[in-house]
């Protein structure tokens, strides 16, 4: 099993944790990356890098030669909802191309890293499990619809064993783009981040990496697996973060409608400034439509031990501090 696992998006937030976890399982993966990307994490790990660009089929074919298992952590991620039709088309085109090339290459197992946004709520309000699937794309905005449609593309394969990993919001070391961790960063910077009070399932990215690596190499892993340590209300997450890190408590949550409106305004402003929106519609919709989750199948099926969120928060801050995440000057924030 020396060189037959390819990780697409290996240089990303989750990808690097998957690479580390595969190595812990005794596998030295091929690490797929786009030509223009930050691969400092792969270089420092002396990882085996290969060019694998979702928009360049030739690179995918070459990267998949002789590969038995593909771990796909590079699915299209809509950073804004400003052009939903284009985003949906891009994500579906990339997914369809990738699936076809993987099938032609003789890939036997395909682990697609999707999201908990595709898990449907239960009518009784209890935590949802892997059995709770939306019958059609949920009408909760671009992110939910795109991720549901992309899952459907991969699950439509009859030539590969497809496994879906569904990670919750990840807080922990490695979040270089400050995605899920944005509100924690704001808290530490002394800001008072506006927030709604939806349900937010959380997990440590290192635990996600371990689970995905086991899904890649173990014969008896489930085909659909929620990776979520706990589900909390967002206000409770921020209060817990403030307590853990010794910071002032956040102000109360705002209404869902106000939070969504704030996100839409933020994206519109980003059109003028050319900068990333302070609050994306995707984050707002994930919060407002958050579903409580039961992530215990991963513990039973894979022997996964979820880290407590206090450990994840503390380790995130320890990792991010020397990188200047918490300095007030925009110059020093990565």
């Amino acid at each position: 099993m020396a060189d037959d696992v390819l990780v697409l998006g290996a240089n990303g937030y989750l990808g690097l944790h998957v690479v580390d976890a595969l190595r812990a399982e005794g596998v030295e993966p091929r690490c797929g990356r786009r030509k223009r990307s930050n691969v400092l994490g792969l270089l420092s790990r002396k990882a085996n890098r290969v060019l694998a660009d979702l928009d360049d089929p030739a690179t995918l074919r070459e990267a998949m030669a002789g590969v038995r298992t593909v771990v796909h952590v590079a699915g299209h991620y809509p950073r804004t909802s400003l052009d939903p039709a284009a985003s949906l088309a891009l994500g579906l085109r990339q997914a369809t191309t990738l699936r076809e090339i993987a099938e032609e290459a003789g890939v036997a197992r395909f682990v697609y890293v999707s999201t908990t946004a595709t898990v449907a709520p239960r009518p009784d309000g209890k935590p949802s499990t892997e059995a709770d699937v939306f019958p059609a794309a949920p009408d909760w905005g671009l992110y939910h619809a795109l991720k549901w449609e992309m899952e459907r593309v991969f699950c439509g394969s009859t030539r590969m064993e497809v496994r879906l990993a569904l990670p919750a919001g990840c807080i922990g070391p490695g979040d270089l783009r400050v995605g899920t961790s944005a509100m924690v960063v704001a808290l530490v910077r002394g800001m008072d981040p506006p927030h709604a009070n939806g349900v937010v399932p959380l997990v440590d990215p290192r635990d996600v990496g371990i689970a995905i690596a086991r899904m890649a190499v173990r014969e008896d892993a489930p085909s659909r697996l929620i990776l979520s340590a706990e589900s909390l209300r967002l206000h409770e997450v921020l209060v817990r973060a403030a307590e853990t890190l010794g910071l002032p408590a956040p102000s109360p949550a705002m209404s869902d409608a106000d939070f969504l409106a704030l996100a839409h305004r933020s994206e519109q402003e980003s059109l003028q400034t050319g900068k990333r929106p302070a609050l994306s519609v995707e984050i707002a919709e994930l919060t407002v439509h958050g579903v409580p989750l039961d992530g215990t199948l991963a513990t039973r099926a894979l022997g996964l031990h979820y880290r407590p969120s206090t450990e994840s928060l503390t380790d995130f801050v320890r990792w991010a501090t020397p990188l200047g995440f918490f300095a007030h000057s925009p110059e020093s924030r990565p």
């Binding site: 223009r36 930050n38 400092l40 270089l43 990188l323 990565p334």
Partner: peptide
């Protein structure tokens, strides 16, 4: 970050994230 990464690959350097 991509810029420093490209420099690192072009000249085969080990550059820490903090330096980048």
């Amino acid at each position: 970050m991509e810029l420093v990464s490209m420099l690192s690959e072009e000249f085969n350097l080990d550059i820490e994230l903090e330096e980048a």
